[in-house]
């Protein structure tokens, strides 16, 4: 086998310059991730809506109704629920801000 040909075959590949390629890949990944998150949120919403729609017709629904009434009446539970909701929203906002900074 010709040594000239052997040398050519061992030569490193010509690598194209980045020219924004990596940025385009990461942007597409971020878009992909957002789309997946939206679909997941829609599915979750659909499930919750279905459960809420069917709940009044089941004995579990009636039990939940009674429990919910008791819970709402408790100021401690109401405060904890509000704090959880605020913390959840804040974490989500911070997460989205961090993601947008990364891309």
């Amino acid at each position: 086998m010709s040594s000239e040909l052997e040398l050519l075959l061992q030569c490193p590949l010509a690598e194209p310059a980045d020219d924004g390629f990596s940025h385009r890949v990461i942007t597409r990944i971020a878009q992909d991730r957002n789309r997946t998150a939206k679909v997941r949120a829609l599915i979750e919403l659909g499930l919750v809506a279905t459960v809420l729609a069917l709940a009044p017709f089941t004995s579990i629904g009636q039990m939940m109704e009674k429990l919910a009434a008791d819970f709402i009446a408790s100021p401690l539970v109401s405060s904890a629920a509000a704090a959880t909701a605020v913390a959840f929203i804040a974490l989500r906002v911070i997460g989205e801000f961090t993601d947008s900074q990364q891309t």
């Binding site: 590949l13 310059a17 980045d18 990596s22």
Partner: peptide, 17 residues
């Protein structure tokens, strides 16, 4: 994603080549 982004920059040349 920033770690993966660094990996993309590291390997994009070889994969594209």
């Amino acid at each position: 994603m920033s770690a993966f982004s660094a990996l993309v920059r590291m390997y994009q040349g070889r994969v594209r080549g």
